[in-house]
Design a protein around this nucleic acid. Structure first.
Lengths: 338, 338
DNA sequence: CTGAAAGCGCTTACAG
DNA sequence: CTGAAAGCGCTTACAG
């Protein structure tokens, strides 16, 4: 393999000279303009290939003041939910001729700000943002004021006056809890974040509402404040099992938490579905392959990713249309844990 | 929130006018050149902030013929191994002022080619590539010939005459198999791809070598050809359990496969570690939280990602240095499954 | 210490 | 149907 300093690259001027036409003509040919005579176009293409021409998208972007780069900002790639979301986003973007500038904030708002600034400097065509937990409510407005088309995913920030794709956490948890209720459970615990984000509050609210509507009491001790992760699930179920008045079922903030619960149950020789009911939220791909397979609420993250990209693409076409919201209604997927 | 057409953006010319200096001076100030008098610099910064200036990195890149975009091409984000790798890559790149253009090929070489071309058009500073399975052996040479600095990760392609970060699959599987041997197992199966990539062959070779060296026979039927996924693991162990002469342990191509095995075992009321030995490969984060916790070979994907970025950064600084290879030696992590 | 000028590689009116 | 010219926002010698 030859390693070498990148030689001065071939430009449309080189092609123009080689083909005996003007730069303008070359430019027109490259974008398949119908203005150009077929014979001329052929000559130009031939020269371009012969010279090994590579289109310089940066230069073109500078000239016409736009770009085909979309910034995707994700807070937690450690959670498969967001990976599936990303895959959905990437797929439709690529198909539409866009390319994805990815940033992972790891729930750190300093990184989020830095990354946003960087995407702005790179003149991104638009942003798909899954904001970090403590994002200011006016972040969407701010980004819009920069002139950057934006779609927010998963986590709502303040009032929904921007394009948004997410799921109905409250309705989902309501359904999940009712499923447990319908299976005869009356002592139903919850593992998730107590305070914090809208999503957290909505999910807990769905759980609480369902219990109340069915006249079922809950113990405050059964509502566990734990990190949103497999580890959080482990700790949560550990606490619950240590109680003298144990719940018979538990609804988990999401599948990651539920997987932690399943794991800890397994450690203790207990089995979800037989010894204790467990339901998750998200229906990530692994949920079908846990042990035992997880009953959960499907929100189709990949589809949400696709929706988000399409929304952004539409927004690119019409900057002044009123904002669109896609709120996925979660669907119960009954497997073995409840 | 005000939605509006992006107004003509503020440029250094605007700042120059506002601050009463020349464009050249503004440019120098923006890059903190020591040439400029402090008082002048201050005046310029003030004007820049007042006007809400945003640096146009594309224009700068065009002018000085470089960029701070690094292309990262990943074949399977569905496998947490690659996500951890990506996180490592992203972290050091961001810290060094670079930004990651991500592409997910989903093991499709058409997408890989398209994405490579796109990154070239975007004038990426360099590429970190985890190639799809059927990539041509001369792909690294080709990319280098384009003048694009490259580091290949995980999967070696042809001869190693390029920067590379990966792990020693053969040694790793050798260790994994010896661990099982040391636990008294003599009937040891393997679940992975039979043909295919270098990595596949190396892993199988490590397994076979270890058995041979210890004078232990294997049955051809115990070497299962299965997809590299949780599902593949399920299918593999299903086949093995259906045999009249069952193995007592199984070494898995990677943790995803092992997790499938664990799951299927659970379905049948069997327990890894007690009823059958299981060892994985990669030590992804979940491996510590499977049920039971997975014994596996640690190769620290996040660290590999960091190494890859650093290698690329070094390569950017010196295009002619001889290629560097980092081959991680896998380490046995004994947990509960063997 | 600062400014005038040229140019990175492209596109876009405008002529003809 | 094609070409000459201007310009996107920046940086880089070169003067002074």
């Amino acid at each position: 393999m030859m390693k070498q300093r990148a030689p001065r690259s071939i430009t449309i001027t080189d092609i123009a000279n080689a083909a005996g036409v003007s730069k303008s003509t070359v430019s027109l040919v490259l974008k398949n303009s119908p203005l150009i005579k077929a014979a001329t176009a052929e000559k130009v293409w031939a020269a371009a290939h012969r010279l090994g021409y590579v289109y310089n998208r940066g230069a073109a972007n500078l000239r016409h003041g736009s770009s085909n780069i979309v910034g995707m900002i994700v807070n937690d790639l450690t959670n498969p939910f967001f990976v599936e979301l990303l895959i959905g986003v990437e797929r439709v973007l690529l198909k539409s001729g866009f390319i994805t500038l990815l940033a992972h904030t790891a729930e750190d708002s300093t990184i989020q700000n830095r990354v946003l600034a960087s995407m702005r400097e790179h003149n991104a065509a638009g942003i798909i943002l899954c904001p970090v937990l403590d994002s200011p409510a006016d972040l969407p407005a701010q980004i819009s004021d920069w002139g950057l088309p934006l779609v927010v995913v998963v986590r709502q920030l303040g009032k929904l006056d921007y394009d948004f794709v997410g799921s109905d956490s409250c309705a989902g948890m309501h359904l999940a809890t009712e499923h447990l209720l319908s299976k005869g459970h009356r002592k139903i615990a919850y593992i998730g974040r107590r305070g914090g984000s809208q999503v957290s509050r909505q999910r807990r609210k769905g759980y609480l509402d369902a219990l109340r509507e069915h006249g079922v009491d809950t113990e405050d001790r059964w509502i566990i404040d734990a990190p949103i992760s497999s580890l959080g699930g482990q700790q949560g179920i550990e606490t619950l099992l240590g109680l003298d008045d144990r719940p018979t079922a538990v609804v988990c903030y999401n599948d990651s938490v539920a997987m932690g619960v399943l794991h800890e149950l397994g450690n203790r020789g207990l089995q979800a579905g037989r010894d204790i009911g467990v339901v998750g939220f998200d229906d990530i791909a692994e949920a079908a392959h846990t042990n035992p397979p997880l009953t959960t609420m499907a929100v189709n993250p990949q589809h949400q990713g696709e929706l988000a990209s399409r929304l952004l693409l539409e927004r690119l076409g019409n900057r002044t249309a009123p904002p669109t919201k896609h709120i996925i209604r979660p669907e119960l997927v009954v497997r073995a844990t409840a």
